[in-house]
Lab assay of single mutants.
Amino acid sequence: MEVRTIKVFTTVDNINLHTQVVDMSMTYGQQFGPTYLDGADVTKIKPHNSHEGKTFYVLPNDDTLRVEAFEYYHTTDPSFLGRYMSALNHTKKWKYPQVNGLTSIKWADNNCYLATALLTLQQIELKFNPPALQDAYYRARAGEAANFCALILAYCNKTVGELGDVRETMSYLFQHANLDSCKRVLNVVCKTCGQQQTTLKGVEAVMYMGTLSYEQFKKGVQIPCTCGKQATKYLVQQESPFVMMSAPPAQYELKHGTFTCASEYTGNYQCGHYKHITSKETLYCIDGALLTKSSEYKGPITDVFYKENSYTTTIK
């Protein structure tokens, strides 16, 4: 009895394709271990004539594949690729409408935090270190965002349907971005203890939790000093293409032309909904596939993004 075979390709990165001759009487799992086709788990399936010449994702289970996976995804987590594939199996079914010149995501599976993050990423200057993220990001900007969303979920250790947080998501993504040249110098002034300067680099240099107003941050924000008295913390120097200011959701007025974009969060910790506000020729609110415009805006804002380049204080 002759062994019926077909020729397929296996890959971990969709760049390096490895030619395989597979036995049609055995499952993919018996031949390769966990195997995925377009995100779908085909591990328990036997090869079919229609699979001839198709590319299958496999887990990096030998040295060659491990090197290829690390170079593309910059992670050695053995569960990463499987999590990416199972997320992709959902995100490829989502709709990605162009809204006001940006790629958004039609609401499904509690994905409003991903839509808000995706919209924000198209408006701030950011370059990702893992080629996987950078490639998928370019495709997302062009309207094909399924891979990018699935990668975000995998890097953030999230599953489809789980509630997510924009600030946490951005923080994970910033860790995989090139923020080497970003720098922030802060000064804390206390009447009792004097003053202390701190220099922050990388992710810490672009994120701040405690106030939404970048102007206020430049002037000074009140913080408790270690001595128990009130101290003032203010920005001395900022070198970065953008800054992200966050605070627990509270009524906040966004003035046209003073910011790049913002995240609105309605609801409580267990259950809520994100919308995205962007400042173009007027203010726009993007909620999944829905767009509304207004000249002014007041609502429960939790993150505001500002364009920056270089700032030095005039406070002496």
Results as ranks from 00 to 15, higher is better:
130 P>H: 02
239 E>G: 01
293 K>Q: 14
303 D>Y: 02
38 D>I: 08
155 Y>M: 06
152 I>Q: 02
305 F>M: 12
41 D>Q: 09
189 V>G: 08
126 L>A: 06
148 F>P: 05
202 G>D: 02
182 C>Y: 08
75 T>C: 12
52 E>F: 10
168 E>M: 15
304 V>P: 00
77 D>V: 05
282 T>Y: 11
207 M>P: 06
103 T>H: 06
115 A>P: 01
208 Y>T: 06
15 I>D: 08
64 T>M: 10
233 K>A: 13
154 A>Y: 01
276 H>G: 00
296 E>R: 08
197 Q>S: 11
223 I>E: 08
198 T>A: 06
261 C>V: 05
139 R>Y: 10
19 T>S: 11
39 G>S: 14
278 T>V: 13
115 A>M: 02
180 D>T: 11
310 S>D: 14
292 T>G: 10
108 A>T: 08
152 I>M: 14
205 A>I: 00
128 F>I: 04
66 R>H: 11
210 G>I: 02
224 P>L: 14
307 K>P: 14
62 D>N: 12
128 F>L: 02
214 Y>V: 10
202 G>P: 02
91 T>F: 02
199 T>S: 07
70 F>I: 09
271 C>S: 11
171 S>M: 12
174 F>M: 07
151 L>W: 05
278 T>M: 12
198 T>H: 11
258 T>P: 01
3 V>L: 13
244 M>I: 07
290 L>G: 12
260 T>L: 15
162 E>M: 09
300 P>L: 11
94 W>L: 04
34 P>L: 10
73 Y>I: 01
293 K>N: 13
244 M>S: 00
28 Y>L: 13
53 G>H: 13
153 L>E: 01
313 T>K: 15
283 L>N: 05
231 A>K: 06
257 G>D: 07
75 T>L: 06
247 A>I: 05
237 Q>W: 08
23 D>R: 10
300 P>R: 06
61 N>K: 11
137 Y>G: 03
208 Y>H: 10
297 Y>F: 10
102 L>W: 06
298 K>V: 15
210 G>F: 00
210 G>T: 01
285 C>F: 10
146 A>M: 03
230 Q>M: 15
100 N>K: 13
17 L>S: 12
127 K>L: 06
107 W>A: 02
78 P>A: 12
189 V>A: 09
220 G>W: 00
280 K>H: 10
182 C>D: 07
20 Q>E: 11
286 I>R: 06
206 V>H: 01
261 C>I: 06
6 I>K: 11
288 G>C: 01
192 T>K: 08
311 Y>V: 10
138 Y>A: 13
235 L>F: 02
287 D>F: 05
108 A>E: 11
28 Y>E: 10
116 T>I: 05
220 G>R: 02
152 I>W: 03
289 A>K: 10
143 G>F: 05
179 L>W: 07
252 Y>C: 10
98 Q>H: 09
258 T>E: 15
263 S>P: 02
133 L>W: 02
230 Q>C: 03
8 V>D: 07
40 A>Q: 14
134 Q>C: 08
40 A>I: 11
84 Y>M: 03
33 G>Q: 06
176 H>K: 07
82 G>D: 15
238 Q>H: 06
236 V>D: 00
25 S>N: 15
114 L>N: 02
172 Y>P: 05
256 H>R: 12
162 E>V: 05
184 R>F: 02
137 Y>S: 05
207 M>Q: 06
277 I>H: 04
263 S>H: 14
231 A>L: 02
117 A>M: 08
56 F>R: 03
44 K>S: 12
48 H>E: 14
279 S>H: 07
130 P>Y: 02
212 L>D: 04
214 Y>K: 03
207 M>S: 04
268 N>D: 14
119 L>M: 07
88 L>P: 05
154 A>L: 08
182 C>W: 03
272 G>C: 03
42 V>C: 15
7 K>I: 11
201 K>H: 14
101 G>T: 06
273 H>R: 02
269 Y>D: 15
126 L>N: 02
214 Y>R: 03
148 F>E: 02
90 H>L: 11
281 E>C: 06
